[in-house]
């Protein structure tokens, strides 16, 4: 068992013929992910990966022909919002958007639209999902994690890799790793994933990797205190980050002083979470 993706995931790649799209599709296929289709408007009818994966002009056509049930998006930021709308409209239940640099107002429109549909969006600006030994959707290097019982959820990309790798070095594996992305507006938050891990029989422990900014970690701490029976270990990046630029008076009115690493660590520790001083300390806290 795992969450979100497994060996039955039938993956569609939006932007499959771009540089990143083709490079990471190759990596996903060699990991064992069942990539059933690609979409690049204007390139329908072509095949990629030596004729193994068909390319379609639209997500709708790809879903009709292949029964894809998950889409990963590699298209550039200016086209990514449209790609998310398209995937949601075609009825893809799980959309994973890797693209970084999408304008915030675009993401607000995407998120408010998707909330009206029965669709889960992971990302954007995220490394995607990895269920070690079964399926990888996104860009997490497959060889840095082994199957196991630790659920990993993170706002960061490469910092997540550090943690998976540190676990692997001591023989600990992951049930599923979920990169929710670091953008201010995203599709899936910590609580969504914590809830899934809590209900996943294979996940016995959880690692939560947060960073400064926003209040997601604080809300996660409240959720953990009230609902989690499984132990949670955390790391928060940005403990030494200097004060940044503020967003006028409005930023202070809306966000107040929330968002510092110290506050988040305090909230998590109060919820019974062990917080590591650095990522390589996490495995010892899980024992």
């Amino acid at each position: 068992m795992s969450i979100l993706i497994n060996k039955d995931t039938r993956l569609l790649v939006q932007g499959i013929t771009g540089n990143e799209g083709i490079f990471h599709t190759t990596q996903m296929v060699s990991y064992g992910t069942n990539v059933v289709a690609g979409v690049t408007p204007g390139k329908g009818g072509e095949w990629v990966l030596d004729g193994k994966v068909p390319v379609f002009d639209s997500v709708k056509l790809a879903v009709e022909a292949t029964g894809a049930n998950c889409s990963v998006i590699f298209v550039p930021a200016r086209f990514a919002p449209d790609a998310m709308f398209e995937a949601a409209d075609a009825g893809i239940p799980l959309i994973v958007c890797i693209t970084e640099g999408i304008p915030v107002q675009d993401m607000m429109r995407v998120r408010n639209y998707i909330d009206q549909k029965n669709v889960r969006l992971v990302g954007p600006n995220c490394p995607g999902l990895l269920t070690p030994g079964e399926s990888k959707v996104g860009i997490i290097p497959g060889d840095i994690a082994i199957p196991g019982n630790v659920g990993v959820v993170s706002r960061s990309g490469t910092l997540t890799y550090e943690v998976l790798y540190a676990l692997k070095l001591v023989g600990m594996g992951a049930s599923t790793c979920v990169g929710i992305g670091g953008d201010p507006i995203n599709g899936t938050n910590f609580i969504d994933v914590l809830e899934m891990f809590e209900h996943d029989p294979l996940t016995e422990k959880v690692v939560l990797i947060g960073e400064i900014g926003g209040t997601d970690e604080d809300k996660a701490a409240e959720y953990i205190a009230a609902n989690m029976t499984k132990p949670v270990v955390s790391f928060i990046a940005g403990q030494t980050a200097p004060p940044g630029k503020r967003m006028g008076h409005a930023g202070a009115i809306i966000e107040g002083s929330a968002g510092s690493a110290a506050d988040k660590i305090k909230a998590l520790e109060a919820a019974g979470v062990k917080v590591a001083k650095h990522p390589e300390e996490i495995p010892s806290l899980l024992k």
């Binding site: 970084e100 915030v104 600006n125 960061s156 670091g182 953008d183 201010p184 960073e211 400064i212 900014g213 926003g214 990046a237 940005g238 980050a241 200097p242 004060p243 940044g244 630029k245 503020r246 967003m247 930023g251 202070a252 966000e255 107040g256 002083s257 968002g259 510092s260």
Partner: peptide, 13 residues
């Protein structure tokens, strides 16, 4: 009160 450095946002002109 300062809003802290945000990793992937706060990039604005």
């Amino acid at each position: 009160m300062p809003v802290l450095l945000k990793s992937k946002q706060g990039k604005n002109m």
